[in-house]
């Protein structure tokens, strides 16, 4: 049982590699080399051999960006229900909870980054592909309202396949709900920095992911509205190299900077510092 738990944990943290138990190594899917798990951890979950970005669980993401021991979770008690009695949704929720070890696809909280009090949300790809349902929308909305009331900046890390089908129109309308909360927060002169990670698509791309005052992205992250396969099918042609990748999306004018993972905390600290002086 203990072993099983360990594998499960390592597997979750290192998606994009298959686990080799005893050696505590994984095979990087990109370079096919075996890499020590401990080395990957120290390297911000980037493959030390080839630079491949492993996906990062939401809780770890928040801890990576916040100052040591400063993160305090908010709204962690909220849990999704099968509102529409949608087929197979209950099972999918249970499986997502086990896989991600989270109650929902986003974690929200408050902490300090470079000593500056900040609200943080981070989404989780292990929870139904970071899809946005009512609770994901509710938690992020509450965070923006809290940040608005306390004049705090918001730092958000997005990863999502879009709105969650199983909640129908309720999940689609979360796009409206969160966008309105972002607007209120912004109208009071508060800062919102968003960090786009792989992939940020669909309804999340078409709402709060694209509404930051400053928009950062991880190298190589897919950022776009429609899924690449859908576009290929619609147009009946293959897509150009680099299409919907962060670097290309920056060329197109929608991202301020592509920031490697080991520099992200430092860049956020700088942004927050400059805005804390302006206030």
């Amino acid at each position: 049982m203990e072993f099983r738990k360990f594998f499960l944990k390592a597997n979750n943290e290192l998606e994009g590699g298959s686990i080799l138990p005893r050696a505590r190594r994984i095979t990087c899917k990109k370079c096919q080399k075996q890499v020590l798990v401990s080395k990957i951890r120290k390297n911000y979950f980037v493959c030390p051999e080839c630079g491949n970005y492993f996906s990062v669980r939401c809780r770890r993401r928040a801890l990576m960006l916040c100052d040591r021991r400063s993160f305090r979770e908010l709204y962690g008690e909220l849990e999704s229900r099968n509102i529409l009695d949608f087929p197979e949704y209950d099972n999918k929720l249970a499986a997502a909870m086990e896989k991600s070890r989270e109650k929902e696809g986003v974690i929200c909280g408050e902490g300090t980054i470079g000593g500056i009090r900040t609200c943080i949300f981070a989404m989780d790809a292990n929870f139904m592909m970071g899809s946005m349902g009512a609770i994901v929308g509710e938690k992020i909305t509450r965070l923006f309202e809290y940040a608005c009331d306390h004049s705090l900046p918001v730092v958000g890390v997005t990863v999502s396949g879009g709105a969650r089908m199983q909640e129908g129109m309720i999940s689609l309308m979360q796009m409206s709900k969160v966008s309105a909360a972002v607007k209120r927060h912004s109208d009071k002169g508060n800062l919102y920095v968003v960090l786009l990670t792989n992939p940020t698509t669909g309804g999340v791309d078409a709402s709060f992911a694209m509404l930051g005052d400053i928009t950062l992205a991880e190298p190589g992250a897919r950022v776009g509205f429609a899924g690449p396969r859908v576009i290929e099918k619609t147009l009946n042609q293959s897509l150009p190299k680099g299409f919907q990748r962060a670097e290309r999306v920056m060329e197109c004018g929608f991202i301020d900077q592509v920031v490697p993972r080991d520099k992200q905390k430092e860049v956020l600290e700088r942004i927050l510092k400059i805005h804390s002086i302006c206030r």
């Binding site: 709402s207 429609a226 147009l235 290309r248």
Partner: peptide
């Protein structure tokens, strides 16, 4: 649905929709 295409994506389909939700809210 919104148009799916290379140009639509590169001209910021996601941003355009987000902007409408954002601006219409006030």
């Amino acid at each position: 649905g919104a148009f799916c295409g290379i140009e639509a994506e590169e001209h910021g389909q996601g941003r355009a929709i987000a902007d409408n939700l954002y601006e219409m809210s006030t």
